[in-house]
Design a binder for these strands. Structure first.
Length: 529
RNA sequence: CGGGGCGUAGCGCAGUCCGGUAGCGCGCCUGCUUUGGGAGCAGGAUGUCGGAGGUUCAAAUCCUCUCGCCCCGACCA
């Protein structure tokens, strides 16, 4: 168990939040995890609230991270045979009623367009009452229904299958309680919608895309995930099976980072999409859908960042290297700038994104803090001394913690002076190391906050006294039993892990922690975002 | 959507109890000096006090309504 909370060593004074912020203007995680999260987003200029309730503005630095995610994911979708397309934002209300379960799942959070015109009445611009739509349009909360309506026209025989389409889009779910990136009324995502001739092929697709998500999370985001399936209660509305990847945040809570659904014939029946199979018989098409959203940016923040600011895995960092010039006289400035330009060019030639911070109204220290809070993995300081010695001063955004080390010592360890050529050639290696270390650090954190638990007493102690995390428990109860546990401990079954996701010590059958019924395997219970 | 808290300059806040016409720090602009971990001095600009009504000679302050954010619940990616 890692020491999850340093607040115990601090006086629990009712001081205003601002007094508890660090010099960086960030509330320490130990004081308030949610304030910390918002401070990070603010300091790193990732996003902010807009004039519209529950909707956020994604600022350039935040959007650049999303664009990097998009690129990585899109490449993987293409590599697995998918193509992109685009379907409408609006869905006729009647479409949603065709798949009952699906409609019920989203009914409570739909934005509905009912009019199509404004009119100035008594000098006030308002909705023209005479412009009512014959059929209201629902702003898509997800696109299964409208996409399957279209697939009906595209599918006649098994030769038309499979259809492997993805779309990048925004969707709207009228959430009551929102948090930047994690849950907003409008969000950006991708949704894959595939059509198959057989159940087996659709099931394979469901699993394959889950694997794509897990690969992306672990190798690009450096976020370790556990692959599993949802319980019936947590399943996507209208799916026969929902598979997911679950990640652990620094407060021990689980975050669903991606889902892949096997939809069976539910949507093809709803839209009446049949095909002629090889035997010449009409059959309903088998479907999958899968998606990840801008929520992943939230996952990224909550997995890696520290009390100084954002920490980004190099593969998703919009800027890999920032160069900060140091000089006194104009003559020095000239030489330093010339060198900075050269270093930038040489690194750019290696495919790295480099920012030369040539603002002359800030002192170097201010720039250091700013770029650290924005998560730039490597800083190069270039000053007259470096020019003389032929070295570059490299500073890493983070290094793996060493127990008992003072912040000053750690700062020193992050900094190194390296012969110029060696430094330039070595930066990709450093970035690769950081990428790996971030993953290992997150993995170690998750391990430290995971427990195998066999009794309700231990379960209660874990979540109420020991900070909680992932509890590997045997659970064989009903949905009602799950609700009961949720009410008592605020925990839910995050997933039923796939067999190869279960560590050796957690394998095997047992008896349900709540009901004592026999249970074939352990599940992960946790508090969740 | 229920309970609690908060909206005052770009950011963080004081002022609200007890009405008298708005202030502090940071940031911003100009100039000079500075620059290897958040610069100094001098001068300067910036506010429909979240919004709408009301009470009053007078409202950031009192009353009513409303919008938004944060926290805790219910719901959810």
């Amino acid at each position: 168990m890692a020491s999850p909370d340093k607040s115990s060593s601090q006086p629990k004074s009712p001081a205003p939040q601002s007094d508890q912020k660090t010099g960086a203007g960030i509330t320490p995680r130990s004081v308030s995890y949610s304030d910390w999260y918002l401070d990070i987003i603010h300091k790193a200029e990732l996003a902010e609230h807009s004039a519209v309730r529950g909707c956020m503005v994604i600022r350039p630095h935040g959007y650049a991270i999303w664009e990097k995610m998009q690129r990585e994911l899109d490449d993987r979708f293409k590599a697995t045979g998918h193509v992109n397309a685009y379907f409408p934002l609006f869905i006729p209300l009647s479409f949603l009623t065709r798949e009952e379960q699906h409609a019920a799942g989203f009914a409570k959070e739909c934005a509905v367009v009912t009019h199509h015109r404004l009119k100035t009445i008594d000098g006030v611009v308002q909705v023209d009452p005479d412009s009512k739509l014959e059929e209201p349009l629902v702003v898509r909360p997800t696109s299964e229904t409208i996409i399957w309506h279209q697939y009906k026209n595209w599918i006649q025989s098994y030769r038309d299958l499979p259809i492997l389409i993805n779309q990048w889009a925004n969707v709207v779910r009228w959430e009551l309680r929102t948090r930047l990136f994690l849950r907003t009324a409008e969000f950006l995502w991708q949704e894959g919608h595939t059509a198959h001739a057989t159940e087996a092929e659709a099931l394979t697709e469901t699993q394959r895309m889950l694997d794509v998500y897990a690969d992306f999370a672990e190798n690009v985001m450096a976020v370790p995930v556990i692959k599993g399936r949802k319980t019936p209660g947590e399943r996507f509305a209208g799916a026969l099976d929902t598979m997911c990847i679950e990640a652990m945040m620094q407060d021990g809570k689980a975050l669903q980072a991606g889902t892949s659904h096997y939809l069976g014939q539910n949507f093809s029946k709803g839209a009446d999409v049949k095909f002629l199979n090889r035997e010449g018989k009409l059959e309903y098409v088998y479907a999958t859908s899968w998606g990840v959203s801008t929520r992943l940016v939230g996952a990224l923040i909550m997995t890696h960042s520290d009390d100084t600011g954002l920490i980004l895995p190099p593969k998703l960092a919009p800027i890999h290297v920032v160069i900060v010039p140091i000089y006194r006289k104009d003559e020095e400035k000239e030489r330093v700038y010339a060198e900075a330009d050269k270093v930038k060019a040489e690194l750019s030639a290696q495919g790295l994104t480099v920012k030369f911070d040539d603002r002359d109204n800030l002192q170097p220290g201010a720039k250091f803090y700013e770029w650290e809070s924005k998560g730039v993995p490597i800083r190069i300081e270039i000053g007259p001394k470096d020019l003389e010695k032929g070295v570059l001063c490299l500073v890493r955004r983070f290094v793996l913690e060493q127990p008992g080390e003072t912040p000053e010592a750690e700062r020193k360890r992050r900094k190194s002076f390296v012969p110029r050529a060696e430094a330039i050639a070595g930066i990709p290696t450093i970035l690769a190391e950081m990428q790996k270390e971030l993953y290992l650090r997150a993995l170690a954190f998750r391990a430290a906050r995971s427990r195998i638990i066999d009794s309700l007493e231990d379960f209660e102690r874990f979540f109420k006294q020991e900070g909680g995390g992932f509890a590997w428990v045997h659970f064989a109860g009903s949905s009602d039993d799950e609700d009961q546990l949720s009410k008592r401990f605020e925990t839910t079954v995050r997933c039923i892990p796939l067999p190869d996701q279960i560590p050796p010590e957690a394998q095997g059958s047992g008896t349900c922690i709540l009901t004592g019924q026999p249970s074939p395997q352990r599940v992960i219970m946790a508090k969740a975002y």
